[in-house]
Amino acid sequence: MNKPAAKDSRVPTGLSDRTSDIILVIFCVIIVLLVAYPLYYVLIASISNPYDVYAGKTFLLPSEITWSGYKAVFAEQSIVTGYLNSIKYTIIGTIFSTLMVFLSAYPLSQTASKDLPGRKFFSIFFIITMYFGGGLIPTYLIVRQTGLINNMWALFIPGGVAVGNMIIVRNFFDNSIPREIVEAAEIDGASKWRTFINIIVPLSRPIMAVMVVFAMVAYWNDWFTAMIYLPGVDKAPLPLVLRGILIRSSATASQASTISGGFAELNKITELIKFASIIVAAAPMLIFYPFVQKYFERGFMAGAVKG
Protein backbone atom coordinates (compact mmCIF):
# COMPACT_ATOMS: atom_id res chain seq x y z
CA MET A 1 0.00 0.00 0.00
CA ASN A 2 2.78 2.41 0.89
CA LYS A 3 4.68 1.78 -2.32
CA PRO A 4 5.63 4.83 -4.37
CA ALA A 5 2.97 5.69 -6.87
CA ALA A 6 5.48 6.08 -9.69
CA LYS A 7 5.85 2.35 -10.36
CA ASP A 8 2.11 1.80 -10.45
CA SER A 9 1.76 4.39 -13.18
CA ARG A 10 3.42 1.95 -15.60
CA VAL A 11 0.16 1.17 -17.33
CA PRO A 12 0.28 -1.31 -20.21
CA THR A 13 1.03 0.54 -23.40
CA GLY A 14 0.61 -2.24 -25.89
CA LEU A 15 -0.33 -5.81 -26.51
CA SER A 16 3.25 -7.02 -26.22
CA ASP A 17 3.49 -5.66 -22.68
CA ARG A 18 0.22 -7.21 -21.65
CA THR A 19 1.28 -10.57 -23.12
CA SER A 20 4.58 -10.46 -21.31
CA ASP A 21 2.76 -9.58 -18.09
CA ILE A 22 0.62 -12.68 -18.44
CA ILE A 23 3.64 -14.84 -19.16
CA LEU A 24 5.38 -13.42 -16.09
CA VAL A 25 2.40 -14.10 -13.85
CA ILE A 26 2.05 -17.66 -15.13
CA PHE A 27 5.77 -18.24 -14.62
CA CYS A 28 5.60 -16.95 -11.05
CA VAL A 29 2.52 -19.01 -10.23
CA ILE A 30 4.31 -22.16 -11.41
CA ILE A 31 7.37 -21.35 -9.30
CA VAL A 32 5.21 -20.65 -6.26
CA LEU A 33 3.40 -23.97 -6.69
CA LEU A 34 6.70 -25.85 -7.02
CA VAL A 35 7.95 -24.32 -3.78
CA ALA A 36 4.73 -24.54 -1.78
CA TYR A 37 3.40 -27.91 -2.89
CA PRO A 38 5.80 -30.15 -0.92
CA LEU A 39 4.83 -28.32 2.27
CA TYR A 40 1.16 -28.52 1.41
CA TYR A 41 1.49 -32.23 0.67
CA VAL A 42 3.07 -32.90 4.08
CA LEU A 43 0.36 -30.84 5.76
CA ILE A 44 -2.38 -32.88 4.10
CA ALA A 45 -0.61 -36.15 4.75
CA SER A 46 -0.30 -35.31 8.45
CA ILE A 47 -4.08 -35.48 8.85
CA SER A 48 -4.81 -38.32 6.40
CA ASN A 49 -4.83 -42.06 6.60
CA PRO A 50 -1.17 -42.94 5.85
CA TYR A 51 -2.20 -45.92 3.69
CA ASP A 52 -4.08 -43.54 1.43
CA VAL A 53 -1.06 -41.23 1.39
CA TYR A 54 1.20 -44.03 0.23
CA ALA A 55 -1.40 -45.18 -2.27
CA GLY A 56 -1.34 -41.74 -3.89
CA LYS A 57 -4.85 -40.71 -2.90
CA THR A 58 -3.93 -37.46 -1.20
CA PHE A 59 -2.39 -35.32 -3.91
CA LEU A 60 -4.83 -32.47 -3.42
CA LEU A 61 -7.10 -33.20 -0.46
CA PRO A 62 -6.76 -35.17 2.77
CA SER A 63 -8.59 -38.45 3.25
CA GLU A 64 -10.30 -39.62 6.45
CA ILE A 65 -9.21 -36.62 8.47
CA THR A 66 -7.52 -37.72 11.68
CA TRP A 67 -5.60 -35.89 14.40
CA SER A 68 -4.01 -39.00 15.84
CA GLY A 69 -0.62 -38.07 14.35
CA TYR A 70 -0.56 -34.81 16.28
CA LYS A 71 -1.90 -36.48 19.40
CA ALA A 72 0.90 -39.04 19.18
CA VAL A 73 3.48 -36.31 18.64
CA PHE A 74 2.45 -34.43 21.75
CA ALA A 75 2.11 -37.65 23.75
CA GLU A 76 5.73 -38.48 22.94
CA GLN A 77 7.79 -37.31 25.90
CA SER A 78 11.04 -36.85 23.94
CA ILE A 79 9.34 -34.56 21.44
CA VAL A 80 7.75 -32.45 24.14
CA THR A 81 11.08 -32.15 25.95
CA GLY A 82 12.77 -31.28 22.65
CA TYR A 83 10.15 -28.66 21.96
CA LEU A 84 10.60 -27.03 25.35
CA ASN A 85 14.39 -27.21 24.96
CA SER A 86 14.19 -25.55 21.55
CA ILE A 87 12.04 -22.75 22.92
CA LYS A 88 14.45 -22.22 25.80
CA TYR A 89 17.55 -22.31 23.55
CA THR A 90 15.95 -19.97 21.04
CA ILE A 91 15.06 -17.37 23.67
CA ILE A 92 18.37 -17.44 25.52
CA GLY A 93 20.43 -17.75 22.34
CA THR A 94 18.66 -14.85 20.66
CA ILE A 95 19.12 -12.55 23.65
CA PHE A 96 22.74 -13.56 24.10
CA SER A 97 23.82 -13.28 20.48
CA THR A 98 21.99 -9.97 19.94
CA LEU A 99 23.66 -8.62 23.08
CA MET A 100 27.09 -9.78 21.88
CA VAL A 101 26.58 -8.27 18.43
CA PHE A 102 25.61 -4.89 19.88
CA LEU A 103 28.33 -4.88 22.52
CA SER A 104 30.98 -5.55 19.87
CA ALA A 105 29.55 -3.40 17.07
CA TYR A 106 28.92 -0.18 18.98
CA PRO A 107 32.40 0.53 20.37
CA LEU A 108 33.89 -0.14 16.93
CA SER A 109 31.59 2.33 15.15
CA GLN A 110 32.36 5.91 14.22
CA THR A 111 29.24 6.89 16.14
CA ALA A 112 30.59 5.81 19.51
CA SER A 113 33.93 7.53 19.23
CA LYS A 114 35.79 9.40 16.56
CA ASP A 115 39.07 7.64 17.13
CA LEU A 116 39.00 4.89 19.71
CA PRO A 117 42.60 3.79 20.26
CA GLY A 118 42.94 0.22 18.96
CA ARG A 119 39.73 0.21 16.99
CA LYS A 120 41.37 -1.07 13.84
CA PHE A 121 43.14 -3.82 15.76
CA PHE A 122 39.93 -5.00 17.40
CA SER A 123 38.04 -4.96 14.10
CA ILE A 124 40.67 -7.08 12.41
CA PHE A 125 40.80 -9.35 15.46
CA PHE A 126 37.11 -10.15 14.94
CA ILE A 127 37.11 -10.23 11.14
CA ILE A 128 39.95 -12.76 10.86
CA THR A 129 37.69 -15.34 12.48
CA MET A 130 35.33 -15.06 9.50
CA TYR A 131 37.96 -16.48 7.19
CA PHE A 132 39.98 -18.75 9.36
CA GLY A 133 39.13 -20.91 12.33
CA GLY A 134 40.41 -23.78 14.37
CA GLY A 135 38.09 -26.28 12.77
CA LEU A 136 35.83 -28.89 14.30
CA ILE A 137 38.12 -30.82 16.61
CA PRO A 138 40.35 -28.09 18.13
CA THR A 139 37.20 -26.08 18.89
CA TYR A 140 35.55 -29.17 20.36
CA LEU A 141 38.56 -29.82 22.58
CA ILE A 142 38.56 -26.25 23.90
CA VAL A 143 34.84 -26.38 24.57
CA ARG A 144 35.45 -29.62 26.45
CA GLN A 145 38.37 -28.18 28.40
CA THR A 146 36.31 -25.18 29.45
CA GLY A 147 33.72 -27.56 30.88
CA LEU A 148 30.88 -26.77 28.52
CA ILE A 149 30.09 -30.32 27.38
CA ASN A 150 26.48 -31.08 28.28
CA ASN A 151 26.06 -27.48 29.37
CA MET A 152 23.56 -25.52 27.29
CA TRP A 153 25.89 -22.52 27.19
CA ALA A 154 27.98 -24.50 24.71
CA LEU A 155 25.28 -23.61 22.19
CA PHE A 156 25.62 -19.88 22.82
CA ILE A 157 29.12 -18.92 23.92
CA PRO A 158 31.58 -20.49 21.43
CA GLY A 159 29.75 -19.13 18.38
CA GLY A 160 28.39 -16.15 20.28
CA VAL A 161 30.07 -13.36 18.36
CA ALA A 162 28.58 -13.43 14.85
CA VAL A 163 31.08 -11.26 13.01
CA GLY A 164 29.04 -10.88 9.83
CA ASN A 165 26.12 -9.52 11.85
CA MET A 166 28.49 -7.34 13.82
CA ILE A 167 29.63 -5.67 10.60
CA ILE A 168 26.04 -5.09 9.47
CA VAL A 169 25.17 -3.45 12.80
CA ARG A 170 28.35 -1.35 12.81
CA ASN A 171 27.51 -0.13 9.30
CA PHE A 172 24.06 0.76 10.57
CA PHE A 173 25.56 2.87 13.38
CA ASP A 174 28.00 4.55 10.99
CA ASN A 175 25.39 5.31 8.35
CA SER A 176 22.22 5.95 10.33
CA ILE A 177 23.11 7.39 13.74
CA PRO A 178 25.07 10.64 13.48
CA ARG A 179 27.97 11.20 15.81
CA GLU A 180 26.45 14.56 16.85
CA ILE A 181 23.69 12.83 18.82
CA VAL A 182 26.28 11.06 20.96
CA GLU A 183 28.35 14.23 21.39
CA ALA A 184 25.27 16.17 22.51
CA ALA A 185 24.45 13.52 25.09
CA GLU A 186 28.02 13.55 26.39
CA ILE A 187 28.00 17.34 26.71
CA ASP A 188 24.89 16.92 28.85
CA GLY A 189 26.96 14.71 31.11
CA ALA A 190 25.81 11.25 30.06
CA SER A 191 28.42 8.51 30.28
CA LYS A 192 29.25 6.36 27.23
CA TRP A 193 27.30 3.49 28.69
CA ARG A 194 24.24 5.64 29.49
CA THR A 195 24.31 7.09 25.99
CA PHE A 196 24.40 3.57 24.59
CA ILE A 197 21.49 2.31 26.69
CA ASN A 198 19.25 5.38 26.61
CA ILE A 199 19.89 6.76 23.15
CA ILE A 200 21.63 4.30 20.82
CA VAL A 201 19.65 1.18 21.66
CA PRO A 202 16.21 2.82 21.19
CA LEU A 203 17.40 4.33 17.89
CA SER A 204 18.62 0.97 16.57
CA ARG A 205 15.35 -0.90 16.87
CA PRO A 206 15.12 -1.61 13.11
CA ILE A 207 18.52 -3.30 12.93
CA MET A 208 17.95 -5.01 16.26
CA ALA A 209 14.81 -6.55 14.80
CA VAL A 210 16.90 -7.96 11.95
CA MET A 211 19.44 -9.44 14.34
CA VAL A 212 16.70 -10.96 16.49
CA VAL A 213 15.08 -12.57 13.44
CA PHE A 214 18.36 -14.02 12.16
CA ALA A 215 19.25 -15.38 15.59
CA MET A 216 15.80 -16.84 16.25
CA VAL A 217 15.78 -18.74 12.99
CA ALA A 218 19.32 -19.98 13.50
CA TYR A 219 18.72 -21.24 17.05
CA TRP A 220 15.34 -22.77 16.33
CA ASN A 221 16.76 -24.80 13.45
CA ASP A 222 20.17 -25.67 14.87
CA TRP A 223 20.93 -29.23 15.86
CA PHE A 224 24.55 -29.85 14.88
CA THR A 225 26.01 -27.85 17.79
CA ALA A 226 23.72 -29.66 20.18
CA MET A 227 24.62 -33.03 18.68
CA ILE A 228 28.31 -32.45 19.35
CA TYR A 229 28.25 -30.57 22.65
CA LEU A 230 25.10 -31.83 24.38
CA PRO A 231 25.14 -35.64 24.31
CA GLY A 232 22.54 -35.85 27.10
CA VAL A 233 19.22 -37.08 25.68
CA ASP A 234 17.17 -34.74 27.88
CA LYS A 235 19.05 -31.74 26.45
CA ALA A 236 18.39 -32.37 22.74
CA PRO A 237 16.56 -29.62 20.84
CA LEU A 238 13.60 -30.52 18.66
CA PRO A 239 15.38 -31.10 15.33
CA LEU A 240 17.80 -33.50 17.00
CA VAL A 241 14.93 -35.44 18.55
CA LEU A 242 13.30 -35.61 15.13
CA ARG A 243 16.42 -37.23 13.72
CA GLY A 244 15.39 -40.50 15.29
CA ILE A 245 11.93 -40.27 13.77
CA LEU A 246 12.64 -38.78 10.36
CA ILE A 247 16.08 -40.04 9.42
CA ARG A 248 16.41 -43.32 11.25
CA SER A 249 12.66 -44.08 11.09
CA SER A 250 12.69 -45.62 14.51
CA ALA A 251 9.51 -46.05 16.49
CA THR A 252 10.22 -45.13 20.08
CA ALA A 253 9.59 -47.40 23.02
CA SER A 254 6.92 -45.22 24.58
CA GLN A 255 5.10 -45.18 21.26
CA ALA A 256 4.98 -48.96 21.08
CA SER A 257 3.71 -49.28 24.63
CA THR A 258 0.96 -46.68 24.37
CA ILE A 259 -0.62 -47.80 21.11
CA SER A 260 -3.27 -50.41 21.64
CA GLY A 261 -4.35 -51.36 18.12
CA GLY A 262 -1.64 -53.92 17.38
CA PHE A 263 1.15 -53.83 14.86
CA ALA A 264 -0.79 -52.38 11.94
CA GLU A 265 -2.01 -49.51 14.06
CA LEU A 266 1.53 -48.90 15.32
CA ASN A 267 2.79 -48.75 11.74
CA LYS A 268 0.12 -46.26 10.87
CA ILE A 269 0.96 -44.02 13.81
CA THR A 270 4.70 -44.27 13.06
CA GLU A 271 4.07 -42.92 9.58
CA LEU A 272 1.64 -40.24 10.76
CA ILE A 273 4.12 -39.04 13.37
CA LYS A 274 6.64 -38.36 10.62
CA PHE A 275 4.31 -35.99 8.81
CA ALA A 276 2.94 -34.39 11.95
CA SER A 277 6.35 -33.80 13.49
CA ILE A 278 7.54 -32.05 10.31
CA ILE A 279 4.61 -29.66 10.58
CA VAL A 280 5.06 -29.19 14.31
CA ALA A 281 8.76 -28.38 13.89
CA ALA A 282 8.37 -26.09 10.89
CA ALA A 283 5.19 -24.27 11.90
CA PRO A 284 6.51 -21.72 14.43
CA MET A 285 9.01 -20.17 12.01
CA LEU A 286 6.69 -20.44 9.00
CA ILE A 287 3.97 -18.58 10.89
CA PHE A 288 6.41 -16.05 12.28
CA TYR A 289 8.55 -14.96 9.32
CA PRO A 290 5.92 -13.22 7.15
CA PHE A 291 5.44 -10.71 9.97
CA VAL A 292 9.08 -9.78 10.02
CA GLN A 293 9.72 -10.06 6.28
CA LYS A 294 10.35 -6.36 5.85
CA TYR A 295 12.96 -6.43 8.61
CA PHE A 296 15.16 -9.12 7.13
CA GLU A 297 14.81 -7.70 3.65
CA ARG A 298 15.97 -4.39 5.07
CA GLY A 299 18.82 -6.18 6.80
CA PHE A 300 20.14 -7.33 3.46
CA MET A 301 19.97 -3.79 2.13
CA ALA A 302 21.86 -2.54 5.17
CA GLY A 303 24.50 -5.17 4.53
CA ALA A 304 24.58 -4.36 0.81
CA VAL A 305 25.48 -0.73 1.45
CA LYS A 306 29.06 -1.59 2.13
CA GLY A 307 29.18 -4.87 0.22
Partner: peptide
Amino acid sequence: PHFISIMV
Protein backbone atom coordinates in the same frame (compact mmCIF):
# COMPACT_ATOMS: atom_id res chain seq x y z
CA PRO B 1 11.69 -23.22 2.80
CA HIS B 2 14.66 -21.21 4.06
CA PHE B 3 13.07 -21.08 7.50
CA ILE B 4 12.87 -24.85 7.85
CA SER B 5 15.61 -26.79 9.60
CA ILE B 6 17.86 -28.93 7.40
CA MET B 7 16.88 -31.85 9.59
CA VAL B 8 13.23 -31.37 8.67
